[in-house]
Amino acid sequence: MLRFIATRIAGVVPQLLLVSLLAFGIVKAAPGDPVASLAGGVEFMSAADHARVSHNLGLDQPLPVQYGRWLARMLQGDWGSSLKDGRPVFEVVARALGYSLLLVGIVWTLIIVTGIVLGYLAGSAPESRRDTVISGFAALSFAVPPFWLGLMLIVVFSVGLGLLPASGSARIGGSGSLIDRAAHLVLPVATLLLTQLGPYIRLVRSSVRDTLSAGFVRAARARGLSRRTLVRRYILPNALTPFITWAGLSLPLLISGAFVVEWVFSWPGLGRLFLQSAMSREYPFLMGCVVVVCTLVIAGNLLADCLVAALNPKLRRSHAGE
């Protein structure tokens, strides 16, 4: 068990390095001159100024050196500052991360609960009307672009009915009451939940179906156990193992959705920061976002794997054989 976790963690290190390399590489490969864009265009800068600024930024060094320095600084928590207005990257990213974690955290929790419930309801009565309705919803959910559903919800509930706020995380100039904050969360959360739920339902449905036909469920039924015990102790613990793995693996999907939803609802999270930075070519922010997001995803997968291992008696017992 411990050994499993140790090897799994060892596997994460090259992943993290690769991610940092990729983030750095893609950003470096970008056309456009960050130095010139500082001054609003090459034409506003003398060659000497250009060289001096480049040197100050370390942009005249060979790429491996630049990467090494960047990595060392990142590890020390010095993530640089905006090329345009000098805002410190670490702080800005950290604040945005808080908002994103709030949104994604709420949605993830809701998705896990509703995914299990709906998936179980569908999978335990295959081909029934209940199954058809739930599976139909799952299929639809998979086909709706999150940003479009967000727009439609805004059109209906904000523009049309005037019920809910369409943007931001709190009323501007408002007291920031809890109700106001919650109201601002309703539409983004609903959008993300409805468009992401599909695969989770499908997975639970099919693994419940598989588990229902397993020998030990049949044997338990032949022992006359109550439905409650059957579901709680025999079916769910086995059917949910692949779900835990998936809950980790699906994080990138969820974050992709969250990015766009943040944009549509002007939610001040990482997604919005990232997209804004992409449009204005703010390299440090882009790099910061990439690193934070990928680290989170990798950590999430690691956690899911460890949880699965901890729940799996075979792995749990394996330390005895070492």
Binding site: P14, V19, I255, S256, L275, A278, L286, V290, V293
Partner: peptide, 21 residues
């Protein structure tokens, strides 16, 4: 290993990076 790492990058993030450059 490379594939797994690539899969851990959210698609939108990856695509936007490519497009933004």
């Amino acid at each position: 290993q490379l594939l797994d790492t690539l899969l851990s990058i959210p698609v939108i993030l990856f695509a936007v990076l490519i497009q933004a450059t």
